[in-house]
């Protein structure tokens, strides 16, 4: 059996047994700690740092997203924080976090954005002051998905203010139970969901929980963004809806659905190319941005097609619609990605 077949067999069985119900946007809004533990017990979290690599993770995540499985609880840790800790973390940080991530017990939220730092991420103002044996973090993060139930947070903070804004940034890992951390949910258009704001009030972070090099945070985080942007979840957020649309389609819909099938085939290949480059040790920032821009467009085109095909369940369309405004914002907006892609295009010809 191929790796893909193994994954598919297990995921199909889980679905048949009622372990989960398929849904769109399952990697952000399908939050199920038990399901994450189940995957952890199967050995399927952390493939990229456990000797398997990005191509294997690519296949695994494609099949999970195809099924609409609830993978949100461990998604951030598996996708980007685990790999960053494995690459840049101290021995103590690795020993303290990686086994828990692999088991689906350690759940990360991302503290990048702030009220005044959205697309302009380098303008973050959260401060880290030196103290005995570590740092004291002070500031506010926002839009941190699932922060109210995460065990840990990744935080990008300023360790010095003297230089250009791209300098003096540092990446930290903190325990959400540390004194001084407050997470509050922010209801979104569906009501209370994943959005949170996080207040940091002199939160102590030991030196061993600094990720990588003090002051090198900008270079590190832009590399991390390739992992954040370059995965199949940037294409497949509405795949469960596409599956329903394909099932309902008749001859009159063949052209419209066929266009999506053709585009999806190319997009999945592009995702595979990005994963292969990650296995080669690269952080392919340009290709990941290209994948995300085109993939986000595909995700909403699926919804429009579903609306046009008679017989697609309304609830599935609505679920996807309510998630859709976030597609082209989260992880970098389409407009900002366009700048990254154009830069790559011009670099490629220079």
């Amino acid at each position: 059996m191929t790796w893909r077949e193994q994954v598919r067999e297990q995921v199909d069985a889980w679905r048949r047994d009622g372990v989960f119900t398929p849904r769109s946007d399952s990697w952000l809004t399908g939050y199920d700690e038990d399901f994450s533990r189940r995957l952890g017990a199967r050995g399927w979290i952390g493939l990229t740092w456990r000797g398997r690599g990005f191509l294997d993770r690519f296949v695994l995540t494609e099949e999970l997203l195809r099924a609409g499985a609830p993978v949100a609880a461990h998604w951030i840790a598996d996708r980007q924080i685990g790999p960053a800790v494995a690459r840049l973390g101290s021995a103590k940080l690795k020993a303290g976090l990686l086994p828990g991530i692999e088991a689906g017990e350690v759940r990360f939220c991302l503290g990048m954005s702030e009220p005044d730092a959205g697309s302009d991420l380098a303008s973050v103002r959260t401060r880290a002051r030196r103290t005995d044996g570590g740092w004291l973090l002070e500031g506010q993060k926002v839009w941190s998905s699932h922060a109210h139930r995460a065990t840990h947070a990744y935080v990008l903070a300023r360790t010095s203010t003297e230089e250009h804004k791209h300098q003096g940034l540092t990446e930290f890992v903190l325990d959400m139970t540390s004194p001084g951390v407050t997470a509050r949910q922010i209801p979104d258009l569906r009501g209370p969901g994943h959005f949170c704001e996080v207040f940091l009030d002199d939160v102590f972070v030991p030196d061993w929980a600094v990720l990588g090099t003090v002051g090198d945070g900008w270079r590190q985080v832009t590399g991390q963004l390739a992992f954040e942007r370059g995965g199949p979840e940037r294409v497949l957020s509405t795949y469960p809806l596409l599956a329903l649309t394909m099932a309902a389609a008749g001859p009159a819909d063949a052209g419209r659905v066929g266009e999506l099938v053709a585009r999806l085939t190319a997009l999945r290949r592009l995702g595979k190319q990005v994963a292969a480059r990650m296995d080669g040790g690269e952080a392919p920032i340009g290709p990941a941005a290209t994948l995300k821009m085109l993939g986000n467009r595909f995700e909403v085109d699926v919804i429009e097609a579903a609306r046009a095909v008679p017989g697609v369940p309304r609830a599935a369309i609505d679920e996807a619609l309510l998630a859709s405004p976030g597609f082209s914002l989260r992880g970098g907006t389409t407009e900002v990605l366009g700048v990254v892609i154009a830069r790559e295009a011009m670099g490629a010809v220079a």
Binding site: T265, A266, R269, L270, G338, A342
Partner: peptide, 30 residues
């Protein structure tokens, strides 16, 4: 003109489309 974002978005679009088409070709060759 690439410094105007309206133009750089066009440059990005052309690049992205050619990357996508190349990925589709690679899938077919595989």
């Amino acid at each position: 003109i690439a410094r105007f974002q309206a133009v750089s978005a066009l440059v990005a679009e052309a690049h992205a489309q050619s990357v996508l088409a190349a990925a589709g070709l690679e899938a077919a060759l595989a």
